[in-house]
């Protein structure tokens, strides 16, 4: 074949068989890999940055803005957007910009608190159901199935109506008075949304627990005599954390949305504090003459929803181990 080959090339080389086992591509940890994938996902990064901007401005802008959310400036009623009032003013002469910023505090806090309550209930419920298994699991999941087939928004409304007075009373009379500054109808929303929308979380946690609980590392922990709580807390939850983070991230905008929806039909957070939903709902009546009053809160709702959804979708793609290549 090849004529001009150096005969010495035909010397055997020994002890080189290990080469094939070398791992060609560098290995990285789960979180590094997730972050690398997340960074590459442009929409997700846009979502993350937007969420950070919204949170920071909700926290810091009210600290130095010259107006307060309740201050009525005489002679400044119903002004369009200007340098002094970037979002304009409402019919009582209140600065809309600062009202939207306070609205951000309220709406974001609703999203966060409600999601955290969901998370707690969902993780406990789903974790117990999946971990105990058998009959208990069967009954608990049957209940979840029933809740799933029910229009939950109706029950949010129902609870809202039912719990209205007890909560108000609790904040008048008991030690909870210290929280009264938050406003009892805001607390009511936290509780109601938190109590109703945990079903999804419970299902996801249960699914994760079921698939994890028979894996070797859990068996090993059991064999060493670890208690059930320790196994759930130390082994199952850390492994199920990816889907849980994603579900929480996606629960935040849906809580914000639900509150806005409730405000729009008249049972959300009431004056003088206003969530974005309340602001939009109030503005709707004057849509013909003062459309900007509606535009800014509505735009804030949309941007926040989109940002959290992009973030959630990106996290899902980044954290889902099945997508690892």
């Amino acid at each position: 074949m090849q004529v001009q080959i150096d005969p010495s090339l035909f010397e055997p080389i020994r002890g080189r068989t290990d080469v094939a086992d070398e791992i060609v591509r560098p290995s990285i940890t789960y979180w590094q890999d997730a972050w690398r994938r997340f960074k590459k996902n442009k929409p997700a990064m846009i979502g993350l940055v937007t969420v950070i901007i919204i949170i920071l401005s909700a926290i810091f802008v009210p600290m130095f803005w010259p107006y307060d959310y309740a201050t009525q400036i005489r002679g400044h009623e119903n002004q369009g957007p200007s340098w002094e009032h970037p979002f304009g003013t409402d019919s009582l002469g209140r600065d809309l910009f600062i009202r939207v910023m306070y609205g951000a505090r309220i709406s974001l806090s609703i999203g966060l608190v409600a999601s955290l309550i969901n998370l707690t209930i969902g993780v406990l419920y789903g974790g117990i159901s999946g971990y105990v298994g058998g009959r208990v699991d069967n009954i608990m999941m049957r209940i979840v199935d029933i809740l799933y087939s029910v229009p939950l928004l109706l029950y949010v409304i129902l609870l809202q109506v039912v719990l209205e007075k007890p909560i108000e009373q609790a904040f008048e009379t008991s030690f909870l008075r210290v929280f009264k500054g938050i406003g009892s109808d805001l607390i009511l929303i936290y509780i109601v949304l938190g109590l109703v929308y945990w079903v999804n979380m419970a299902r996801i946690v249960r699914g994760q627990v079921l698939s994890l609980k028979n894996q070797e590392f859990v068996l090993a922990a059991k064999a060493q005599g670890a208690s059930a709580w320790r196994i759930i807390w130390k082994h199952l939850i850390p492994n199920a954390i990816g889907p849980i983070i994603v579900t929480v991230t996606l629960a935040i905008p849906s809580a914000i949305f639900t509150e806005a929806f409730l405000s729009f039909i008249g049972i959300g957070v009431s004056a003088p504090m206003a969530s974005w939903g309340t602001l939009a709902s109030d503005a709707y009546r004057g849509i013909r003459s003062y459309p900007y009053l509606l535009f800014f809160p509505a735009a804030c709702i949309c941007i926040t929803m989109i940002a959290f959804n992009l973030l959630g979708d990106g996290l899902r793609d980044a954290l889902d181990p099945h997508m690892r290549k």
Binding site: F10, E11, I13, R16, T17, V19, A20, D21
Partner: peptide, 27 residues
């Protein structure tokens, strides 16, 4: 023993060389 080569970068020599007990320099 061993794995086939990554065809993203096919080897210049004989692809079986790394797993071959009789490999020579030319391979």
């Amino acid at each position: 023993d061993g794995q086939p080569p990554d065809l993203l970068k096919p080897p210049q020599g004989c692809p079986f060389m790394p797993r071959c007990r009789y490999a020579m320099r030319i391979c």
